[in-house]
Simulated assay, not measured.
Amino acid sequence: MLRSSRSRWSERLRDDRGSAALEFIVAGILLLVPLAYLVLTLGAVQEQTLGAEAAARHTARVIGQAPDAAAASARGDAVLAAVVSEYGMDADAVDAQIDCRPAAASCPTAGATVIVTVRTSVSLPLLPPVFGLDRLGAIPIEAQAAQKVSRLWGDP
């Protein structure tokens, strides 16, 4: 009697009917959650990268085509603000730097090459701002663009 109950119990343990659905659910969740997080992260990084590249490119172009220094500054600030708004970037986290090659006392100058560098960072999705985790898990992003300024720039 004892032997037959053991054999029935061992047969039940070896029987795997109905466990495929459970295995699929567990394996699916274990694989789907990291995959979804990876997609969210890559999307956020790509959006910020495209925004930084657009900001650098358009700002350099506007500065290079402006008629004088005052117009270049005003137009550059306006374009940078518009691109930051368009791509949903944090305006406080965006840092734009303008350099000229060859180096001059005032930038931009006639015949120089304007180089605009835009730096920002993107926080990893779903990281809470507790204990600075959002800043700790931030990915830095940098983009540069160059634009040649006309030799007749600034002349009336």
Results as ranks from 00 to 15, higher is better:
3 R>I: 08
89 M>T: 01
141 I>Q: 09
51 G>D: 05
78 A>F: 03
139 I>D: 00
105 A>F: 09
38 L>T: 13
41 T>V: 10
55 A>T: 15
116 V>F: 10
89 M>D: 02
89 M>K: 02
83 V>L: 02
45 V>L: 15
93 A>T: 06
91 A>D: 08
36 A>Q: 01
65 Q>R: 15
133 L>W: 15
24 F>H: 00
135 R>L: 09
16 D>A: 14
115 I>G: 03
54 A>N: 05
101 R>C: 01
136 L>D: 04
18 G>E: 08
70 A>R: 12
23 E>V: 11
26 V>W: 00
122 V>W: 05
86 E>G: 04
147 Q>I: 01
126 L>Y: 11
140 P>G: 05
133 L>N: 06
27 A>F: 11
150 S>V: 00
54 A>C: 08
64 G>Q: 05
106 S>R: 05
80 L>K: 10
62 V>G: 01
89 M>G: 01
55 A>G: 14
112 A>M: 02
64 G>K: 04
30 L>G: 14
133 L>E: 11
93 A>E: 12
31 L>I: 13
27 A>H: 01
32 L>T: 13
126 L>M: 12
92 D>L: 13
132 G>N: 09
67 P>K: 14
10 S>A: 11
86 E>A: 15
59 T>G: 07
78 A>W: 03
52 A>Q: 08
92 D>E: 15
41 T>R: 06
118 V>S: 02
14 R>N: 07
130 V>C: 00
24 F>G: 00
108 P>F: 11
67 P>V: 14
22 L>S: 12
35 L>W: 12
70 A>S: 14
150 S>C: 04
119 R>E: 10
36 A>T: 15
100 C>I: 11
31 L>G: 08
79 V>F: 06
134 D>V: 11
4 S>D: 11
37 Y>I: 12
26 V>L: 09
49 T>S: 11
85 S>H: 09
81 A>T: 13
115 I>E: 10
75 R>Q: 15
138 A>D: 06
46 Q>E: 08
150 S>K: 02
144 Q>W: 01
13 L>D: 07
111 G>R: 07
61 R>Y: 12
101 R>E: 12
134 D>I: 10
18 G>A: 07
9 W>K: 06
128 P>M: 05
6 R>S: 10
90 D>W: 03
115 I>Y: 02
52 A>D: 09
108 P>N: 04
138 A>R: 14
5 S>H: 09
116 V>P: 01
127 L>E: 06
109 T>L: 03
27 A>D: 03
21 A>G: 10
103 A>K: 10
143 A>E: 04
67 P>H: 13
51 G>E: 05
31 L>N: 01
1 M>P: 08
137 G>F: 15
124 L>V: 15
110 A>Q: 01
